[in-house]
Computed example of a mutant assay.
Amino acid sequence: MASDDDLRYREWLIYCITTPLSSAIILANLFIIVAIVCNRQLHNTPNYFFLSLLVADLCTGIALPFIPRMALEQHLDWHACLLVHIFPNFLFLSYLFNLVMVHYERYLCIANPLHYSQFWVHRCFPVALLTTWVPPLLYASLPAFGWNEWHRDDDVNSTSNSTTTGDTDDGDTCSYKRVFPTAYIYLEVYGLLLPSIFLIVGMTGRVLCITRKQLRDICKLHRAVERDQASDGEHRLNVRYAKCVAVVSLIFVLCWVPYITFVNVTLRWMKGDGTSQNYTLHVILSCTGIGSMAIIPFVLGLANRQYTEPACKVLRKLRDCWRGVQGHTDM
């Protein structure tokens, strides 16, 4: 167990890092959620999937301060310990599943635009939406159904206490090691998290390849009309595609790489001592890794002018009012 000073330092470190990140994630998601809800033209299946992603991301922002605390040893009973570990894990998994579903839906729309309405994602929207919430809830709840180390540790502690004269009882010590077995963590990382990330990256790469092929076809038509001379429209298309590739690459570097680094460092941290020597690094990586991945929906939302138009109108009105006030004061 860490000393009281170490625990206070860890709590302070978590609070300083997670509070601004969590606030920014919550406000950014509320900004786009309000824009979708208030615009009836956006009430369709693709935007419902995106709205579900925003809600999951909002919940992830709320749960962000509790995720680094999983590595702390706290004095909690069995039910409270399950709650503080299972609930944040469920919210994060649901966010990841929603992110995969949004990319999958958009991939189907681009890869098969003529048959999009025939796919199960569009025809069975409630079922598709449930697949983003129910499986994460079931998997996150497995420790509550017996796949944990809590009772095994209690048996070991009771046996050791019965053979010694000490009075120490660690039965109420709550930590992730007692809730999540090693096999459970490895299954989540290598069976759910990393495959989901690679699936998103693969679908995004496939969409870029399809876009590139369509761009080449358009350029051929332009050159046929312009007699092998590159037109301004062709140049603008190439520039927009280059910007798209640059944005996708930047998102991967800034959002996915920190999280993948956090996952691998965490696994090594679990294999090692896992004490306070590496705890500061673990907190920083967990907050920045999850926080950077949580800004992906906001970036996707900013790319759609329909989501940002209501806020832009309000800002323009405020700007005009401010200019009017400044004009009256100058007179």
Rank of each mutant, 00 (worst) to 15 (best):
N148M: 04
A35I: 05
L53V: 08
Y48C: 10
S276V: 08
V257T: 07
D172K: 11
T168M: 05
V100G: 07
P195E: 05
R8P: 00
Y259A: 09
L91K: 02
R236S: 08
P136H: 05
N39G: 11
I86D: 01
A71N: 10
T288W: 11
S175G: 12
L54T: 09
G274F: 06
R212P: 01
A311S: 11
I17M: 15
I33A: 09
I36L: 06
V299W: 03
E188Q: 14
T280C: 05
R236Y: 12
G171T: 03
P113N: 08
L99S: 09
D320K: 12
G61D: 09
G146A: 04
L237E: 14
Q118M: 03
I200H: 01
L58K: 07
A24G: 01
V247K: 08
R268N: 15
I86R: 01
M203H: 00
A303T: 14
C174Y: 00
L82T: 02
L254P: 02
L129S: 14
F119T: 14
H85L: 01
Y139W: 11
D77E: 02
D228A: 11
T329P: 00
L215R: 15
F66N: 08
A56W: 00
L187G: 14
I32R: 00
V84F: 01
P65K: 07
S196Q: 13
L221I: 13
D167H: 13
R240M: 05
E149H: 09
N278P: 00
L91R: 03
A230Y: 05
I260D: 02
L72C: 05
D155A: 13
I251K: 08
N161I: 11
A246L: 01
G171W: 02
F92H: 03
D228G: 09
D330L: 13
L82A: 03
H43A: 11
A242S: 10
F198N: 09
K220G: 02
L315T: 15
T266C: 10
H282D: 02
D57L: 00
T280A: 15
F298Q: 14
T60D: 04
A303N: 03
